[in-house]
């Protein structure tokens, strides 16, 4: 017994069908975590603090959203999911503002 994978389907569609939303969330978290570390190291090579800070916090927001939605199951409660997303977005914006203040002075 096993999966019957139709030969004419592109690999992307096959993967989407085989992976559960939870597994996709995990893979997304791995990619986002590695991505944020790479972006941070780009700052060492002269990329602007505004850009790197914004991208790092944006990726952190995506990670938090993924954990809330898929790990903690908030996808089953859309109104709560949206509420958490907005509050976390506002929090990350405040963090970004505080981070950028010294660069603006």
């Amino acid at each position: 017994m096993g999966f019957v994978v139709p030969g004419h389907l592109p690999i992307g569609i096959i993967m989407t069908q085989l992976l559960t939303p939870l597994t996709r969330a995990w893979i997304a978290l791995l990619i986002l975590s590695i991505g944020s570390t790479i972006v941070a190291s780009l700052a060492d090579y002269g990329l602007g603090t505004t850009a790197t800070g914004a991208v790092i916090l944006l990726l952190a927001w995506f990670k938090a959203r993924t954990i809330l939605s898929r790990y903690l199951g908030l996808w089953k409660a859309p109104s709560w999911n949206h509420g958490f997303n907005w509050v976390l977005a506002a929090f990350c914006l405040i963090l970004l503002g505080l981070y950028l203040v010294p660069a603006l002075m």
Binding site: L29, S33, S36, T37, V39, A40, A43, D44, T49, T52, G53, I56, L57, L59, A60, K63, A64, I67, L68, Y71, L72, L95, Y99
Partner: peptide, 21 residues
């Protein structure tokens, strides 16, 4: 759920303390 909360806190802690130079 408790474990995911620990996870959630870390994904916010990690970038602020370790990455935002």
């Amino acid at each position: 759920s408790f474990w995911h909360m620990v996870d959630l806190v870390w994904v916010l802690l990690f970038p602020v303390i370790y990455l935002l130079a």
